[in-house]
């Protein structure tokens, strides 16, 4: 079996005493689209920048496409395309000149490829990048990240600034690259995007991976969205249901209806509900956003201990 596209072992980056990322254990298989989600400051960009050698790791190890990120960085980068979250380029350059310069780092002639990508993204390459809108600058970034048909595409918040039409084209391009065989690491805090395009996802919180699962698995976990409608006009009081503490979160009430996210034994939930007179019950798979919020709200409610154990679980998977 071929080596994973990305494999990290206890990858850690510290900025003096400040936290960066801690003991990141991540395996991204070849050919998959892997989501990397977490709020701002969770450590997504730090992880990506460490993998690319933009910043040096403090400890741990990592390989990208089988190359050691420290000792074989140049060889590794020849096969990687990277789109940073914020795109800045040289002052006064036209897009075509910037892309020509970017292409000069790789073996081959990418003139046609650049033109094809520009046509797909509806980008005028003769314009100065300084005069471009944020969305068009992002398109330049997308082309420079994809022009050499890399084996691994690392996207850090790639859609910010893109209009919906350009986003659609962008996702089409990424899917085509993936069908060609490219692995994609997709970092975002826009969960609907991750949910739509990714095969698996890692959730990062406070510099640690707290969960790594497939999108399907993640939605199949014990975490469920529960919506119950009381038979009368008074909604259910969750506190009196007898559910274990910490097993429910995000409760919302509207009329006789109560919605909440439940994480626990479904038999306990069904027993608790069976003891009440209800007009309706709906138990559905939550959206990725609800799962994500569950992980974060859960952490905030219960402190870090539960997540430290989750992080270990995630690391062992």
């Amino acid at each position: 079996m071929s080596q994973p596209a990305i494999e990290t072992h206890d990858l850690t980056k510290r900025y003096g005493k400040a936290r960066g990322i801690t003991d990141i254990n991540l395996t991204v298989n070849r050919g998959e689209i892997f989501g990397f989600i977490g709020p701002n400051g969770a450590g997504k960009s730090t992880t990506i920048r460490t993998l690319l050698g933009l910043i040096s790791k403090t400890s741990g190890s990592a390989t990208v496409l089988g190359y050691d990120i420290t000792n074989e960085r140049k060889e590794m980068l020849a096969h990687v395309g990277y789109l940073p979250s914020e795109v800045f380029y040289y002052d006064g350059m036209r897009a075509k000149d910037l892309l020509k310069y970017a292409a000069s780092f790789y073996d081959g002639d990418f003139t046609q490829r650049i033109q094809d990508l520009a046509a797909r993204l509806d980008l005028d390459l003769s314009k100065r990048i300084d005069d471009m809108s944020l969305g068009n600058k992002k398109k330049v970034g997308i082309i420079q990240g994809l022009l050499h048909s890399p084996d691994l595409i690392i996207l850090d918040e790639p859609t910010s600034g893109l209009d919906p039409l350009a986003q659609r084209t962008f996702f089409d391009l990424i899917r085509e690259e993936n069908e060609r065989g490219a692995t994609v690491l997709f970092s975002s805090h826009i969960l609907s995007e991750v949910q739509n395009i990714c095969d698996r996802v890692a959730i990062i919180r406070d510099g640690r991976i707290i969960e790594t699962q497939s999108i399907a698995e993640l939605r199949r976990t014990a975490v469920k969205r529960v919506s119950v409608t009381a038979a009368g006009e008074v909604p259910l009081n969750l506190a009196t249901l007898g559910l274990p503490a910490g097993s429910f979160a995000g409760a919302e009430t509207e009329g006789p209806q109560t919605s909440f996210v439940f994480n626990g034994d479904c038999n306990v939930l069904l027993s608790a509900l069976a003891a009440r007179r209800l007009a309706d019950v709906n138990i559905t798979e939550p959206s990725l956003e609800e799962i994500f919020m569950h992980y974060y709200q859960d952490g905030a409610d219960r402190g870090g201990a539960a997540h430290d154990s989750a992080a270990q679980d995630g690391a062992q998977r």
Partner: peptide
């Protein structure tokens, strides 16, 4: 020009 990322992420030592 704030474009260190561009250059340093290219395959060059």
């Amino acid at each position: 020009d704030r474009c260190m990322d561009f250059l340093i992420s290219k395959p060059a030592s």
